[in-house]
Design a protein around this nucleic acid. Structure first.
Length: 804
DNA sequence: GATCCCCTAAACAGAA
DNA sequence: TTTCTGTTTAGGGGAT
């Protein structure tokens, strides 16, 4: 672009050449003779404009350019200096003589052109650019110029042709101006003109060569495209054939061949782009500048070297554009193959060929050819096949596909991710809004930039972050699974599927290629909603509550831990009671105490389910906190916090199963709200067994360790009287923090009807579990909970054992 | 069918 | 006055 601007400046200066002769002359020569082609290339390369528009001093320039400067270069620098200095000094007195010289020069030029026409066609017609540069890179001396004008080689003379004649009028005008300004003598001008014509001819021949190469590339691309289509048709045939065994091998070969063809096609397209970019360059510039393309072509033929950066820029953009188009076309083709392979569309070969020409496959090329034809109408005629021969079928811009129209109508302002089904989907909001406007109003009033919204947004960010991590993990796992299954399938039996869907590397590659670019949240959510591992999906459909026979609180901790991401992201009701969840939230806290609001937050952060219907479940939480004696309200300086009385919690749980032989338990001799505080000894045993078994499964699953073998024997471990009888009151004494127990009732006065031996057993079991966890993972989040759970459970078991 | 557990809803009161 | 917190009651559903 800078070159174009330079040319504009050049044009203006030519118009004022008489006013500022030498600066204009410099401008003209700078833009009409590139550094590689101008006889004064050295001077021009080192010349630059000053801020005031005049030329800066030339360090080693010749006299013709530096006449306007104060420092005149020495005559020894360039042979031309002597001539120009003499012309300048005698300019005033030799005007008449010069006019005669001009006339003579004009006649001489006309004669030389006639001679050139006569000898046209006798010389070589393929000079390369290196030769050209070599010929004109050195400044010609006066003698050489004279000899050049007198003895022009036939090969050089023959290269002057039409373009020279076409532009001779303007060049003659420039020459006359130069003669009037005494810059060049007629001989120099004549040499200059010949060189100029030579370059034009060379450029023209290069252009013809480029056209020839371009046509060859087009032909090759056409052949490759035909081969590709043939390949696809063959694949279609094979897919429709009944012999699946043969089809598998043939498909693999064809798929390999298809990939090679596509690669070759890409290569050819790239070469085509290079040729095309070079060919369309002057035209694009001419159209862009609103100038006469022919005139510009003349100029560019002289100055093409300076346009290299621009050419590179255009080529890069065009190449990138083509790469995108190639990708989309390949993707479309693969989609087509997948449709057929999956028997979604039982096509015949003819229909398949028609499908190849469908909009889905060809639309990228149509768009490409539209732009291509717009940019270079003269380069590619409308009747030409264009890229891959699809240009003729391009629709008009008004015939936009339905999908495009739908996409346009589905503007983002009509879809709000926080609004759906008439409900505000802000976490914990669920406000019903009649329409989008009402929702927007609600959004602007209720969910402003305050602490609450900020915190909720922060939570959501964490949710998204965790979700992405989980997605990546699951994706890697799936990939590993697929890889393993595919390998094992190949190793075991290369037999295709019974349903006809052959698992081949082709399909795997197709699946990969198709799935990679389309990472959307939809499959992710669906995947989250249907977990395979540790799936609590059985409890998804409604408030199915866990009973005592289900997993205990230990299982709750383990299950929450294992499915934390699932519950956090899936709108699934956790299969635990409010009481269990509240307890879990409290015991997960560092201080084993939480305010009501913190419990709310734990529910919302841990379970996606509790991000809606806030009023309902919050009421339930409060109800449970008040209802169950295991939850104790403690007031401290900060306010009220809730703690858990573990004994009371576990004492409460067996109440549910009152069937069976009723034996008054030793544990928790205090009165209960429930009139049926009957416990089955076997129940405790089952409970503990279930706990241990689940812990085994959990640890085996999570840590892949088998220490449980010892853990399972813990309840039956012989009591060691030497063990410290220190009673672990950690879980039995909720942190007081200087607060006051409001709801204590019988708790503080309650005798723990646990024998000394049982206390010892608590300590042993808990310490052992702690030590085991320390060996496994020092920071295991479940450690305390599990230890406590098992302690309680063992306590119950001991009781049952004693009772038995 | 009785009983129990759990959930949901609601009313009410006190505090912030 | 509103909102939050805590308590209590009532009723329904599921499990035993």
């Amino acid at each position: 672009m800078s070159s174009v601007n330079t040319f504009n400046v050049c044009s203006v200066q030519i118009g004022h050449i008489g006013d500022v002769p030498f600066e204009s002359a410099v401008g003209w020569s700078k833009n009409h003779f590139s550094a590689a082609t101008s006889p004064w290339s050295t001077a021009i390369r080192h010349s630059r404009y000053c801020d005031d528009g005049t030329m800066d001093q030339d360090v080693d320039g010749d006299g013709a350019i530096n006449l306007s400067t104060s420092q005149r270069p020495s005559a020894a620098t360039t042979p031309n200096d002597s001539v120009h200095n003499e012309d300048a000094e005698q300019a005033a007195s030799l005007e008449k003589v010069l006019k005669e010289q001009q006339q003579h020069q004009q006649l001489e030029l006309e004669r030389s052109w006639e001679q050139e026409r006569d000898v046209k066609g006798n010389g070589s017609s393929s000079p390369n650019s290196d030769h050209r540069v070599q010929d004109h890179s050195s400044p010609p001396s006066t003698d050489s110029q004279k000899s050049l004008s007198a003895t022009v080689p036939p090969a050089t003379q023959s290269q002057t042709a039409g373009p020279h004649i076409m532009s001779s009028t303007s060049n003659l005008h420039h020459m006359q101006q130069l003669l009037q300004q005494h810059v060049l003598n007629p001989t120099q001008l004549q040499t200059l003109m010949k060189q100029h014509s030579l370059l034009q001819q060379q450029q023209h021949q290069q252009h013809q060569l480029a056209e020839l190469g371009k046509k060859q590339i087009e032909q090759t691309m056409q052949q490759l495209q035909e081969q590709l289509q043939l390949n696809l048709i063959q694949q279609t045939h094979i897919l429709q054939s009944t012999d699946k065994k043969k089809a598998s091998g043939s498909l693999q070969q064809l798929a390999l061949q298809q990939q090679q063809l596509i690669q070759q096609l890409q290569l050819m397209q790239r070469q085509y782009v290079v040729h095309q970019g070079m060919g369309m360059q002057p035209l694009m510039l001419a159209q862009g500048q609103g100038m006469n393309p022919k005139t510009l072509e003349d100029v560019f033929s002289d100055c093409h070297v300076e346009y290299n950066p621009l050419v590179d820029f255009i080529l890069k953009i065009t190449d990138h554009f083509y790469s995108i188009k190639v990708y989309f076309q390949q993707k479309s083709l693969l989609k087509l193959i997948m449709k057929i392979a999956n028997r979604q569309e039982d096509w015949t070969v003819g229909e398949f060929q028609q499908g190849l020409n469908s909009r889905e496959v060809l639309s990228p090329w149509k768009e490409l050819n539209e732009q291509h034809l717009t940019n270079s109408k003269s380069e590619l005629n409308d009747g030409s096949p264009g890229l891959l021969g699809v240009a003729t079928n391009r629709p008009s811009r008004d015939e936009a596909p339905l999908e495009d129209k739908l996409e346009r109508t589905t503007t983002p302002d009509r879809v709000h991710h926080l609004y759906g089904h008439g409900v505000c989907k802000w976490p914990g909001c669920e406000i019903i809004c009649e329409d989008l406007q009402a929702f927007i109003k609600h959004l602007n009033t209720e969910h402003t930039l305050d602490d609450r919204s900020t915190a909720q947004a922060r939570v959501q960010m964490q949710v998204v972050s965790q979700l992405e991590l989980q997605l990546q993990k699951e994706r890697d796992r799936l990939q590993a699974m697929m890889h393993h299954l595919h390998l094992s399938k190949q190793l075991s039996s290369p037999e295709p599927h019974k349903d006809g869907s052959v698992v081949t590397p082709t399909k795997m590659a197709v699946n990969t290629s198709l799935s990679q670019p389309s990472v959307s949240i939809g499959p992710m959510v669906s995947a989250v909603r249907s977990p395979v591992l540790h799936s609590p999906a059985a409890n998804v459909a409604g408030p199915i509550r866990r009973r005592l026979n289900d997993k205990s609180a230990l299982s709750l901790a383990g299950e929450i831990q294992r499915n934390r991401e699932f519950y956090k992201n899936a709108d699934v009701r956790p299969p635990f009671t409010y009481a269990s969840l509240i307890r879990q939230s409290i015991i997960e806290s560092p201080d084993k105490q939480l305010t009501l609001n913190e419990i709310y937050n734990w529910f919302q952060n841990t379970f996606c389910y509790f991000r809606r219907n806030a009023a309902t479940w919050k009421n339930a939480v409060r109800h449970n906190l008040s209802l169950h004696k295991c939850f104790m309200r403690v007031e401290n300086v900060k306010g009220a916090v809730w703690t858990v009385d573990e004994v009371e919690f576990y004492k409460r749980r067996p109440q549910r199963c009152s069937s069976g032989p009723l034996t008054q338990p030793v544990v928790g001799g205090a009165t209960s709200k429930s009139p049926t505080l009957n416990h089955s000894p076997t129940l405790y045993g089952d409970h503990l067994s279930a706990n241990v078994q689940f812990m085994q499964a959990s640890l085996m699953d999570d840590n892949n360790l088998s220490f449980i073998t010892g853990a399972s024997s813990l309840p039956s471990r012989p009591r060691d009287s030497s063990e410290s009888p220190v009673h672990d009151t950690h879980m039995r004494s909720p942190p007081m923090n200087g607060g006051l127990h409001i709801k204590q009732e019988s708790m503080m006065n309650q005798e723990h009807h646990v024998t000394r031996e049982q206390e010892q057993m608590h300590h042993i079991i808990k310490r052992e579990i702690h030590s085991e966890y320390d060996e496994i993972e020092p920071e295991h989040p479940q450690r305390d909970t599990m230890a406590e759970d098992l302690t309680i459970a063992s306590e119950h078991n001991d009781t049952s054992v004693l009772d038995a």
